[in-house]
């Protein structure tokens, strides 16, 4: 059964269809959130929230074979909103020195588990602006097409191409500074 079929059944209140949908997509959604925000615990919360939104909005979903873009649009909006809130709260707590461009941060114990290359890649990704990071994650790790990314980000294909180019340029600079 494809995602659209499961969504139609979920919209009719079929809990079993929704369970299948969650189990089908939980790893991809969790990995996306973990790379977006850096922390596994926060990614777990955001992943739950993503699927609860899917459930709530199932009736509004129009089956058109674009479930993946729709799912990652919800996930991306939640992650960016979470990062923006974190920035605001940091400022309210007078922690301006921690107010870098990105609020994504990787816990120290998680960094210790990684080898040097992975650590550098993770840190470089965390330094990207949120939308650039979202675009590159969807392209590189979830293998979304430019059109699917444009749908997920509610933008145009040329805008996605520009986001990806800027992200790749920033990553290249960052990684080459570290000798990679």
């Amino acid at each position: 059964m494809n995602d659209d079929d499961l969504m139609v059944r979920t919209a009719r209140g079929d809990g079993e269809a929704f369970r299948l949908l969650v189990e089908r997509w939980e790893k991809a959604v969790f990995a996306f959130h973990e790379r977006m925000v850096g922390s596994a615990e926060d990614a777990l919360d955001l992943s739950q929230e993503t699927f609860l939104r899917v459930y709530d909005q199932a009736r509004k979903y129009r089956p058109s074979g674009q479930f993946r873009s729709w799912l990652f649009r919800i996930a991306g909006n939640l992650a960016r909103s979470w990062l923006r809130r974190k920035r605001i709260v940091r400022w309210l707590r007078f922690e301006p020195e921690r107010h870098d461009r990105s609020s994504s941060s990787i816990p120290a114990d998680r960094l210790l588990e990684m080898d040097e290359t992975e650590r550098a890649v993770r840190q470089a990704l965390a330094r990207l602006p949120d939308r650039q990071r979202q675009a590159i994650l969807l392209r590189r790790y979830d293998n979304l097409s430019h059109q699917e990314i444009a749908t997920a980000l509610r933008t145009t294909v040329p805008a996605v191409e520009s986001l990806l180019q800027r992200a790749m340029g920033a990553l290249r600079k960052d990684l080459s500074r570290r000798g990679l």
């Binding site: 369970r19 939980e26 080898d115 990679l180």
Partner: peptide, 16 residues
Amino acid sequence: EALGASAASEPPRPLW
């Protein structure tokens, strides 16, 4: 290629 070094994390527990 370097981006491929970032392994995907799995949820610490099942979401359902």
